[in-house]
Every structure is written in structure tokens, then in C-alpha cells.
């Protein structure tokens, strides 16, 4: 099962305001790219040599910010009422 298929099962109320921002300057000289392995929703994707990020499928666990040793990820929870809405949990 692909991650997109899994995420499509969840209810998301996606906010227009972005809750995670990635400073791509910091990513350029990052060799390890831990964010790629830390994110359980594959929100970080490596395209050629740079990281692209989308917040829409974020499960709000917070792993990426802890994993990023470059401090390139600024993280907060989405605004109240927005983001993932689990039915089962």
C-alpha cells in the first residue's frame, strides 16, 4: 500500500496557513537528509538534489523537526481545528 493511499483514508482539514516551513538553504549542504526517513507520511521528497516539502498530509508527530540537525525546519502545530482528524486513533 502506497503512502498516498494510506493518507487518502484519513480526514484532513487542510489550513491555508502553512504550519511547517523548510529553509531550503539549510538543506543544500545537508548530506544525511534525515527528514526523508523521519517523516512517517513522506512529506519530504528528494528531487534531484533538493528537498521538496508538502504539509498537506502531515500527521503532526513532530519527528522532522527533532531529526533535522541543521535547524532548517520550523515547526508548529496547525491552527486549532485544522490538520489531521483521526476517527479511531
Amino acid at each position: 500500500m502506497k503512502v498516498e493511499e494510506k493518507l487518502a483514508l484519513n480526514k484532513f482539514d487542510v489550513d491555508k496557513e502553512v504550519h511547517i516551513t523548510v529553509n531550503e538553504e539549510g538543506c543544500r549542504d545537508c548530506e544525511l537528509k534525515p527528514c526523508l526517513y523521519a517523516c512517517p507520511a513522506d512529506c519530504f521528497v528528494l528531487r534531484e538534489d533538493h528537498i521538496t516539502f508538502s504539509y498537506e498530509g502531515c500527521l503532526e508527530c513532530g519527528s522532522c523537526q527533532i531529526a533535522c540537525a541543521k535547524g532548517a525546519i520550523s515547526w508548529t502545530y496547525p491552527r486549532g481545528g485544522f490538520g489531521v482528524c483521526y476517527q479511531y486513533g
Binding site: 493518507l7 484519513n10 508527530c61 519527528s63
Partner: peptide
């Protein structure tokens, strides 16, 4: 049938 996917710290 999978009905939800979730993650947590």
C-alpha cells in the same frame, strides 16, 4: 481493509 493511518511520538 485499512481504514486509517496514524503516527505519533
Amino acid at each position: 481493509q485499512t481504514v486509517e493511518y496514524s503516527a505519533h511520538l
